[in-house]
Write a protein that binds this DNA or RNA. Structure first.
Lengths: 239, 239
DNA sequence: GCCGCGCCTTGACGCAGGTCAAGCTCCGGG
DNA sequence: CCCGGAGCTTGACCTGCGTCAAGGCGCGGC
């Protein structure tokens, strides 16, 4: 693991740029941003390197500068439950700032990444002096709550088919031509959907047989998005 | 629905007492508490009355004074997924303060209850002026995040038996003599465990046959807590 | 080129648990 | 007192999906 290091002053302006772009700090004054940039620590992560593990005391919270970080729990049975994959510009672990206990989950880089570590003490201090920053933190945590609530929903969508349809619709909508490039292996997607790679394969196969999509390697092309949507609605409606 | 009303000044001191007792406000000065008590609204709820529904714009956040409030989502299939049952002294819906969107869930009284409505604008204003209050809100939301993460865990605990054991152990530990009085009907407990009343009945029946507990009406008496615990651990360990 | 190793796919099988249905108990009302 | 309904229990059945196992395919190393 390469040692984290304080950025040289030269880099401060670049850092301020990064900070300004993210949801969490986007409305702050340049002065405040400079203060934050002053105590932030840049940390590169290799693929599959852990940023923190469940139970460790919290160093602070994090902001993804590049790459992607998988936040997950491992259940007592050893299964990994993905909570969320955070990408460039997103912040996480704000909850660890305010809690006396350690991190409640694990964080691991999906690919080579760099994160900004925002140490606990100075950011809490700043929050105390900048009420609008406090508001932002509240807002950010509240959106994380919503993500979790959404996950709950997903888990209670019974069918694997329904969950997959849901996932496909959500992702195909934002892609031109319905072309979805899988970020990782199919086993990973299966894990996100809470199923096994075999079942995922079967379910995809069924949709393929119905000419709704084609799969080749790590690329899924959705041919008939409306059909998927009505199918999803039908699945939700019945039962 | 009886109209909510502002408490008379006579009641202010009582209110301050309630506020002081709760996690969220427990460390604040009497002065701040008085300010809060000044804008809080007392709202009684009949059994099964809804406090708010998913999507409604947020009035503010809430503090349970007496009774119990079930916060839940209803999935697209119409099933009710319990997120948490909040009881006396607990606060909820803080997330709605900071978010522009409406409530992400529903809240309904399990039994006749009274809640304190903490309106959005004045409490946000106060948070802006009292950094330590902001910290408390952050802490509170962070613990709610943990609850949700815990729920995720529970849902991925596969067995109904395992989930039930988990529930029993958690509840029997805090009860003298392992005597657990069910708050609602067994169907409700089943829902909390994410199963049907039939399966719950069967699973309880199996534990009863093993002389680990007895069930009579709404009372479950755990006879052999350690046995339940080792059974739980066995269930988690294997597979 | 060939081989070996992941990854994906497909088939076969077993099982937890959801659903339907029938009987039981308890309780309140007329 | 009888009756009806709500909730609980138990049985029978069926289905989704997790698991094991056996190929097929692509890819990198040698």
């Amino acid at each position: 693991m390469p040692a984290p290091h304080r950025p040289a002053d030269l880099k401060l302006t670049g850092l301020v740029g990064t900070l300004r772009c993210c949801q969490l700090f986007s409305g702050l004054s340049g002065e405040d941003l400079a203060v934050i940039a002053g105590f932030v620590v840049v940390q590169p992560l290799a693929k599959d390197e852990y940023l923190f593990r469940e139970g460790e005391p919290s160093r602070g919270c994090y902001l993804v500068q590049s790459g992607a970080v998988n936040v997950h729990r491992v259940s007592a049975t050893g299964k990994e439950q993905v909570i969320h994959v955070f990408r460039s510009g997103e912040s996480f672990a704000e909850a660890a700032l305010a809690a006396p206990t350690g991190y409640p989950a694990n964080a691991r880089a999906v690919e080579p990444s760099t994160v900004l570590v925002i140490p606990k003490v100075p950011i809490l201090d700043l929050i105390g002096r900048r009420p609008d920053l406090a508001m932002r933190m509240l807002g950010s945590m509240s959106s994380h709550l919503r993500v979790l609530v959404g996950m709950l929903d997903d888990l209670t969508l019974k069918d694997v088919e329904t969950r997959l349809l849901n996932w496909l619709v959500k992702h195909a909508a934002s892609r031109p031509g319905g072309r979805i490039q899988l970020p990782g292996t199919k086993r990973v997607l299966a894990a996100e959907l809470g199923t096994s790679s075999e079942t995922l394969s079967r379910t995809l196969g069924r949709l393929r047989d119905q000419r709704l999509l084609t799969v080749s390697g790590k690329v899924i092309v959705v041919h008939d998005l409306p059909a998927l949507q009505t199918m999803l609605r039908r699945n939700l409606g019945e039962n």
